[in-house]
Every structure is written in structure tokens, then in C-alpha cells.
Design a protein around this nucleic acid. Structure first.
Lengths: 203, 203
DNA sequence: GTCTATAAAAGGATAGAC
DNA sequence: GTCTATCCTTTTATAGAC
């Protein structure tokens, strides 16, 4: 069962935008990779920008099945699930010899004045990601201080991931990513320590 | 004393690459902004990519005078100097209505397979930044745990800044940047707390 | 060192047959 | 829904006079 044409285009564009970015990927690149002709692409999409919309929707809709479930497979500890997700990005970095990282982050910084629809989709992808982390943090319950802002902490996990990916790519050295993750681990360790200390003082 | 032609080109390109990115800035854009003709630009630069090299060299060489000194003016506390630098980026975000952030970070993620010279210059800019932070951390002395890795912590400050800028830009909401900085503040507060606690236990 | 004119190629998109 | 052919614009870069 061959994937339908529209899906093939989105899949090819997804990979090309990740490897080369949006502006550096030409419609001809997408056609070449899919072995299609321009008539097919423009039958399904009004223009190149609409292909990007399709790609961002695919990322948004696939986050659970394509990203979170594989990364969390077999893990129960919510904090470890968070770091397993970060380990997934580490794999991406290593497999590409530190050339490519988070596709959404790259697009977010490449597109300087995106149309509102594009911007909303980029934001929706970030929100989908951070909400998933936030749920893990809520599952961690009393291991974190009760007054720690779970949503802000989830954003900070994304912050650390994106910043670490950026430096690893720039230096072509995964060590930069590893150190960012290690700092985040210590941040969590200090929070858990604080939660324990306070629990004791209330005992 | 009008700036010489080469400098005018670099200054114009610096601003345009920041506003629009490298690929979305045409040579014609640079010529239009400088009121020069293509002959002048190609007299000083073999091609557009060499203009980017000039821009990245200018950022690298100007970090002290153009970025750090203004941000740190009047501040003595090394930790506060770090957060004053982050406040500088906050100003950039707010002044551009959350559309533009760190010029180096944007270029680092836009250019997917840059020539080695470009990549080295991007990396040199990050290193110049993190080295400056590292020196502030060393100046903080015993306020941080003696075994805390100053270099890794300095990288983490950049990580938090870049990740915060990315989300603020994507959501067009400086609150995302603010919360990243706040998390970093708490990270430092917890480190300082740990340093104090250990100092006491050794007394 | 700067000007005008233009070459040469790439890129997004369309038309119309099948 | 897919094919071929092609238009039109943008973009980088060059040539050669001044």
C-alpha cells in the first residue's frame, strides 16, 4: 500500500526542511525526492508555503505516536521519561554527525516573519511538547516542591534542549548538548533535594 | 567622517541578516540600504557569503565594546552582570515586538551546512560570549560551589538565553524569555544556597 | 573605487494535454 | 490526478566604461 501522493510530498518535505531548511529547499528538490512532477504538487498545495503548513501539521499531529511513545517506551519514572526524550534528540544529533537537531526549532529561527498560520503552527508544536513534559512533571508529584511552577519548568526543559542543540550543531560537538542536559539534571536534583528538605521540616 | 564603504556594507548586512536572515536578504537589499551599486560591493567582497563572514567577524570583534560594556555599565556584582546581559536581550525582544532575538543564534540554525569558515565564526561568537560569562562566574568565587563547572555553567547561561529567545519569538510573547531567565535565577540561587550550606558544614 | 548594463542561473508557479 | 513544457521573477554575479 503505497502512501498517497499528498502524504509522500509531506514526508519528503519534512525530511528536506529538516536537512536543508525551508528556504534552501526548492520545490524541485521535493519533486526530485518524490519522483513526482510539479503538476502533482500544485494539485495538492497552492504553493510551497502550504507544504510547510502540511509539514508542521504532521509534526503537531504525530508528536504522541512518532516522538513521545517511542522515547518513553518501557519507562515509568516521569522524570526519567523527560530525560529519555532528551536522549532521543541526542540520538538525532549523533546520527547526523551534529549537523541537524530539532526541526521545529530550526524552522522557528529561520523564518523571521512567518505568516500567522505558520507561526501558530510552530507555537502549537512547542506547546504540544511542553504540555507533554508538564504532565510528566505533574506525575512526579511531591518529588518537586509544591510551589514549583510545572508549566514554567516544562518550558525550561524545552529551553535547555533547544539551546543545547543549537550549540552542539554550531560546534559540531554533542558534548555541548550533553552538558546542557547535565545542568538540567542538576536543576531537577536540586529541586528534588529542596522538596525533601521541606518535607522533613514540616514533619 | 562617513564610514568607509566596506564598513557601511557590513553594517547594513548585519542589520538585514538580523531582521530577515541570510537567505532572505538579497544582495539587492544590501545595495538598496547602503545606496551603493553592485560594483562597489563586489569590489570588496567576492560574494554574498563573504559579506556574512565580514558580519560575523564584526560581531566577534565587537562583543566587548558593543555588547558587554554597555550591558554591564555601572554594575559590580558578577552574577548581576550576567543577568544584565540577559536583560539586554530582553530589550531587543521587546523593541522588536518579539520578532527578533539573538542574531548569532538565528544564523546558527538557519545555515544548515555552512562552510567551515562560517561555522568556525559562529562558534567563535558563542565562545566569546560564554568565555565572558565564565569570567563573571569565576569572579563570583566562593558564592558558587567550588566543584561547580564554571565553563559548563556559562554554556548553560547561553543555552537558557537562546532557548528563551526562540520561544519568545515563536509565541511573540516575552513572557517565555522571562520565565527562562527566572528559572536560571533559581538555578543560581540553589547553587549559592548549596555553597553556603557546605561552607557551614565545613566550619 | 564606483557606475550602468547585463549575463546566467535558479526558483516558484502556471497552462493545457492526457 | 499526473504529465510536459514553459513563463516570469528574483537573485547572484560579471563586464567594462568612467
Amino acid at each position: 500500500m503505497a502512501a498517497d501522493t499528498r502524504t509522500r510530498i509531506v514526508q519528503a518535505a519534512m525530511e528536506l526542511f529538516w536537512l536543508k531548511g525551508f528556504n534552501s529547499t526548492s520545490v524541485a528538490d521535493i519533486l526530485s525526492r518524490t519522483q513526482l512532477n510539479s503538476g502533482s504538487l500544485y494539485h495538492f498545495f497552492p504553493g510551497k508555503q502550504d507544504v510547510l503548513i502540511g509539514v508542521l501539521e504532521a509534526y503537531r499531529d504525530g508528536i504522541e505516536e512518532m516522538l513521545l511513545k517511542p522515547a518513553w517506551d518501557g519507562l515509568d519514572d516521569p522524570i526519567e521519561q523527560i530525560f529519555a526524550l532528551l536522549a532521543h534528540y541526542r540520538r538525532l544529533i549523533v546520527e547526523t554527525e551534529c549537523a541537524y537537531g530539532c526541526p521545529i526549532g530550526s524552522l522557528a529561527l529561520e523564518l523571521h516573519e512567518p505568516d500567522p498560520q505558520i507561526r501558530d503552527l510552530l507555537a502549537a508544536n512547542f506547546v504540544g511538547w511542553t504540555r507533554a513534559i508538564e504532565q510528566r512533571l505533574e506525575a512526579a508529584g511531591a518529588r518537586l516542591p509544591h510551589d514549583a511552577d510545572r508549566a514554567a519548568l516544562a518550558e525550561f526543559v524545552l529551553t535547555a534542549m533547544e539551546g543545547g542543540v543549537m550549540q552542539a550543531r554550531t560546534h559540531r560537538d554533542v558534548g555541548y548538548f550533553d552538558r546542557a542536559v547535565e545542568m538540567l539534571r542538576r536543576h531537577f536534583a536540586m529541586l528534588e533535594q529542596a522538596a525533601r528538605t521541606r518535607a522533613r521540616s514540616h514533619a
